[in-house]
């Protein structure tokens, strides 16, 4: 629990601003889904905003982030432009990936966001490799790899953590533990003592924290990222949270009682952060209003944008060979 006495009020307000931006982005994305202009599946991050916010506040622009299918919050917090993201969700020209990726492949290399991933756990080994490149080049950058509690049951989790330890790589692994893997309670399908215990068994320093306490995430991430940047090798952050929406934007989540979700709304990370500071109510309200205005503008611009020209289907496949060969 964050101690209210020696808290940096401005930092809390900044975090509230980022969390509201993520929340507002997700609500607009869900509106897009309702209006059928979000074309594919989206995985909202409502309720989990504190993790992306607290961690990315400690990453530099040229640090690297690898994310998952539930990646909008991470991408925004790393500094991506929400209008380009919204365009991508709508499959429009000017999307981060030119409309070729959509929500599950959202990426913005310009801010070090090397991609969401449609394959659970796959980002863990890629993150290890990104760390490996940083080490080979003698750079001071840090890689942050965020994945869900479901990802720890796939082989790449084991292989990637071991790799990062063996090569002493600058990687922060973050398990965003929302208790669910799609419609399944993750614990019922996970042996042993869970994410941190597994990480420790590989020799990683691991910490388990309340991931809805943004200042706790901020502080732990800062400590770990500093240690990593100074050559201390990989670290593991296990953050508990709760997914307040369904698994996807269209999942009614009937596999869990309504009362459970109502109870969890009381633990809303934005409300909790706002309660940490006195006298900042207006500043936070203003940040909230600006966030909703920003995201609704992004929605409108993306909605009005055109689809990409169909010929672009043939670009950026690869340098060698003709992608049209044999077709039609």
């Amino acid at each position: 629990m964050t101690d209210r006495r020696n808290i940096d009020a401005n930092r809390v307000v900044d975090h509230c601003r980022m969390m509201w931006r993520i929340r507002a982005f997700e609500e607009n994305a869900l509106r897009g889904l309702d209006e059928k202009i979000v074309l594919g599946a989206i995985h909202p991050t409502i309720g989990q905003e504190a993790i992306a916010t607290g961690i990315c506040a400690n990453l530099n622009r040229d640090d690297v982030l690898l994310s998952t299918h539930r990646g909008h919050g991470h991408t925004l917090a790393k500094g991506a432009n929400p209008e380009a993201m919204m365009r991508e969700l709508f499959g429009k020209e000017g999307g981060n990936c030119g409309g070729k990726g959509g929500s599950m492949h959202i990426a913005d290399f310009g801010v070090g966001m090397l991609g969401a991933n449609g394959v659970v756990s796959a980002n863990i080994v890629i993150a290890a490799g990104a760390g490996h490149a940083i080490k080979l080049k003698g750079e001071k950058k840090v890689v942050c790899c965020i994945f869900g509690d479901g990802a720890i049951n796939r082989g790449p989790f084991l292989e990637g953590l071991n790799w990062a330890v063996v090569f002493n790589l600058p990687v922060l692994f973050v398990c965003e533990d929302n208790g669910f893997a799609a419609t399944t309670r993750t614990k019922t399908m996970t042996g042993g003592d869970g994410p941190s215990a597994r990480a420790r068994s590989f020799g990683l320093q691991a910490k388990e924290i309340d991931g809805n306490d943004v200042m706790a995430v901020d502080e732990t991430a800062r400590e770990m990222i500093d240690a990593i940047r100074n050559g201390g090798g990989p670290r593991f952050l296990h953050a508990h949270t709760y997914r307040l929406t369904g698994h996807t934007g269209s999942d009614p989540a009937t596999y869990r009682p309504k009362e459970e979700v109502e109870e969890k709304w009381k633990d809303d990370p934005i409300v909790r952060a706002s309660a940490l500071v006195d006298g900042q109510k207006d500043a936070i309200e203003k940040a909230k209003a600006e966030a909703y205005a920003e995201m609704s503008r992004a929605f409108d611009v993306a909605k009005a944008a055109s689809f990409p020209s169909a010929d672009l289907a043939f670009t950026d496949v690869q340098d060698a060979g003709d992608p049209r060969q044999g077709a039609y």
């Binding site: 690297v64 690898l66 090397l114 796959a122 863990i124 080994v125 890629i126 993150a127 290890a128 490799g129 990104a130 760390g131 490996h132 490149a133 940083i134 080979l136 080049k137 890689v143 082989g155 790449p156 292989e159 990637g160 071991n162 790799w163 063996v166």
Partner: peptide
């Protein structure tokens, strides 16, 4: 570092190469 041994982790050898290649090596 440049002729690097690896654990018996084919998925990670390949996956790490993907990350390392995206980062300019």
């Amino acid at each position: 570092e440049r002729i690097s041994d690896a654990p018996i982790s084919e998925a990670c050898i390949m996956g790490a190469a993907v990350g390392a290649a995206m980062m300019g090596t």
